[in-house]
Each structure stands twice: as C-alpha cells, then as structure tokens.
C-alpha cells in the first residue's frame, strides 16, 4: 500500500488568527482517516486547503507524490479526489441520475459538447453507482425535493463517479439520524476497501468515528495534538482533556 496523501507543515491564518498551524499527516490507500476536534479547531480550513479552495500560507500537500499546493479544486479533482460537503451540494434543478451523469461527462471532458443529449450519456454507469449507494429508486426525482439523507448518498455517488483514489468528506453524516449515519459510514468503508480508496473525513459523532476509522488525527486550535489508531487516540490524555474539558464546561 502506497502513501496517497501527504500533508506537510500546513499553515493558514486569516487576518492574524491562525486557523491551521503546522499540521502534518499522511494517508494510505484504502484507509479511513478521521479528523476530529472541537468546533473551530481548523478542520474545515484543513479540508479546504487540501481540496484547493484555499491556498496555504506555508506547507505542502502531495497526492500520490504530486505536489498540489495551490492548485484549483477542479484540477485537484482531475487527479482523482472526490469530495462531499458539510451541507450537501448538488445541482438542485437536475434529477438524481443527471447529477451523477454530470460527473461522468466532466471526467470524460465532454462538458462543452453541443451535439449529444445528456439523457443518452453515461446513464447506465450512473445508474450503477446509484444502485451502489442505494438511491437507485429515486433516480428520476429532482434533487431539490430529495430527503437530506438521500442527498448525502447522491453526493457520495457523485464523488465516486470520477474513480477517485481519495475521498474528502466533510461531515458526511451531518443532519442524519443515528441509524442512517452508521449505515452510510459502513457503506463508505466498504466501498473504500473494495476500491482501495483512501478516505479523509471529519465527524462530530464519536460512535461513527471510532467504529469506522482506521486512523484518527485530532486537531485543537489549529494544531495536530494526536494521531493514531482509535484505541491509541482514545487513551491519549490530551485528547481526553479536550473532550472531557469541553464537556465539563457544559457546551
């Protein structure tokens, strides 16, 4: 198994406030890496740096040995990085299957094609992915009227359509019920193992994290304070401090 993602000494500050402070970690193919930490720990910033939406002040990001620091999101995506958002982001005026078809069209570089109709393009491939994530029955419904949990699954299908090597999932289960959360993460884990995809995700729900992550990194005030297997992290004093401490103050 090779190293998929390397993050080296990442720094980012906004107007004097340091959001990410010298974070380094890496991720192997086929592993699920959870990034946890209290609110404002710099998780989302970290995500947006890796994804290319933000430019780091310092530090490097490599994917499969290729330096992607400062690349635009759409170029990062072409290297094989799928992404889902904290608030599900799909094309609301399109049907479920069309959303996935769009990704296929983009990965085949047919975005500017003016000859064929979309309805005939990559429909079968898209349907297969919908089946995989379990929303195939909803294929012809507009995304605008889908239940939130289903929308999250559609996002997953969209992220998978590019045959990614790496999935970036920002709170993939936010806004879902407990049962659904576990189911979705189970599904994600299975797909990741099957396809040898590395997954980096953030999550609030510790049940989800500890039952599915292979490794965990913990951020606090922009700094990486712990990393390791779930058991290692569970036993880490500093982590306990943060989580217990914050519980103690009642938030």
């Amino acid at each position: 198994m090779g190293v998929l993602l390397e993050v080296i000494e990442l720094h980012k500050s906004f107007g004097g406030v340091t959001a990410v402070d010298g974070v380094s970690f890496d991720l192997q193919e086929g592993h699920l890496l959870a990034m946890i930490g209290p609110n404002g720990a710099g998780k989302s910033t970290c995500f947006n740096l890796i994804n290319g939406q933000l430019r780091p002040d310092r530090g490097k990001i490599r994917i499969l040995g290729k330096d992607i620091t400062g690349m635009k999101p759409r170029h990062v995506w072409r290297l094989g990085v799928g992404r889902t958002f904290q608030v599900a982001s799909t094309f609301l005026s399109m049907t479920v299957v069309e959303n996935v078809q769009m990704v296929f069209i983009s990965s085949h570089r047919k975005l500017n094609s003016m000859t064929k109709k979309v309805s005939n393009l990559y429909r079968d491939e898209a349907m297969e992915l919908l089946k995989l994530v379990g929303v195939e029955e909803q294929w012809d419904r507009p995304c605008g009227i889908l239940a939130y949990g289903d929308l999250k699954r559609v996002e997953l299908a969209m992220a998978l359509a590019n045959n990614p090597k790496l999935l970036l999932m920002d709170e993939p289960t936010a806004g879902m019920g407990l049962k659904e959360r576990l189911k979705l993460m189970e599904l994600t884990a299975r797909i990741a193992k099957d396809r040898n995809i590395g997954v980096l995700f953030t999550e609030h729900d510790m049940d989800v994290v500890f039952s599915h992550a292979d490794f965990i990194i913990v951020l606090n005030y922009g700094k990486l304070i712990a990393r390791g297997t779930p058991t290692e992290v569970r036993d880490n004093e500093e982590v306990k401090e943060i989580y217990l401490g914050s519980c103690a103050t009642g938030t």
């Binding site: 994804n51 995506w77 609301l92 399109m94 983009s106």
Partner: peptide
C-alpha cells in the same frame, strides 16, 4: 445551481 459543486467536479 451551485457555486461549490461544479468546481469540485472539474
């Protein structure tokens, strides 16, 4: 439809 999504699918 979206500002985030298109950019993240190329």
């Amino acid at each position: 439809d979206s500002h985030l999504r298109p950019d993240s699918i190329g």
